[in-house]
Write a protein that binds this DNA or RNA. Structure first.
Lengths: 191, 191
DNA sequence: CGTCTATTTGAATGTACTCAAAAGCGGTGG
DNA sequence: CCACCGCTTTTGAGTACATTCAAATAGACG
């Protein structure tokens, strides 16, 4: 719980009364490796804040191929906002890549949170702003860089993820096949 | 101005007092075709709401190639939020593809707006949520669809934009060369 | 009408994919 | 603690999708 409070505290100042209030809105939950937090076709009931571990959000295309949209590790929010806010079936699945502890919050509680602690609205807006900025740079990458450049950029920006995430998932995130990533890595080693 | 009020009204209820207040925050501005609203390297001073016309946001890569990130037509918000909120130099440029009327708001006014009309925070959050959802589906498209599929999808979802935006800009938005788009279109006509 | 830009066409090339098979690696049970 | 099984990564050949470059044609606008 402290991790979340600390994260929120970087953006807004909360009174100690509000801190106590806030705690009641979240439930701590632990997921085993390979366990699903959200399943394609269902309705997203929670948003998740990762305390410890690693999650992947992916989509399955018409050919049955999985595409990783994002990874969430410590101090990241994840979930399907479209499904969560509109209570419509999700096209995503979220799966734990490791044993993962999260704080989760339901839609009813989420909405109540804004009423009880209006300052939280500012925090949420900043989170969405940041998400928008991050995604925009991802779109640009996919448009203007080759697979090799994208991989090198990922390597530079997320060296920690390279360590803990299987290559096939990284390949999928970068939009290439695992075979091609393997070839690229081999090429890069031999310069 | 009415267009914006109508748009906001779809998400939050404003008292007539607040409507009057709100109007004071925005300035109407008209840009000529080809005119720049934001120039690469400068600091974004405004967020824009398009009343009439069409804007493109693009980035120039290291080879000098332009990549269109988004188009904004009537009732769309645009701007570089990263540069606007952090007052850092932007990597984007925004240019009018037609004579375009916008409502623009400066950073100081934007921040004041949340204080004066807290309900506006909800509207802004919803806007960012929607942007996040839209961008996510764009990322997925780039990852899982071929150029032909992306073009057909664009055709289906934005037939209006096909009419008014030059093909080379659509090609750039789809992440392909104008030559290849031309070839695709030719192929599609002859099935 | 002429100029400038956008679109089309085509050939050669490059980037990334598919399919198949081998090699590596990690966890589990005996 | 080792052997085996299943999954991940590597390797390679052949192919498909998309780019580059060059040149011709078509359109838009003053």
């Amino acid at each position: 719980m402290n991790r979340l409070l600390q994260h929120i505290n970087q953006h807004i100042k909360l009174s100690s009364g509000n801190i106590e209030k806030l705690k009641k809105f979240f439930t701590i939950k632990s997921y085993k490796k390979k366990e699903y937090l959200l399943h394609f076709g269902s309705i997203s009931r929670y948003e998740f804040f990762v305390i410890k571990g690693c999650l992947r959000t992916f989509i399955v295309d018409k050919n049955g191929t999985e595409h990783n949209i994002m990874f969430a590790t410590e101090n990241w929010w994840t979930g399907d906002i479209a499904s969560f806010f509109n209570q419509t079936p999700t096209s995503y699945s979220i799966q734990a890549l490791e044993k993962t502890d999260v704080l989760q919050i339901s839609k009813e509680k989420w909405e109540n949170l804004f009423i009880q602690i209006p300052e939280f609205g500012h925090y949420a807006r900043v989170m969405f702003q940041n998400a928008t900025v991050a995604q925009q740079s991802r779109i640009i990458q996919n448009l203007s860089y080759t697979a090799e450049e994208r991989y090198l950029d990922f390597l530079a920006k997320s060296p920690n993820l390279i360590q803990r995430i299987p290559q096939k998932h990284i390949a999928s995130y970068l939009g290439i096949t695992p075979e091609f990533l393997s070839m690229l890595r081999n090429k890069l080693v031999h310069n």
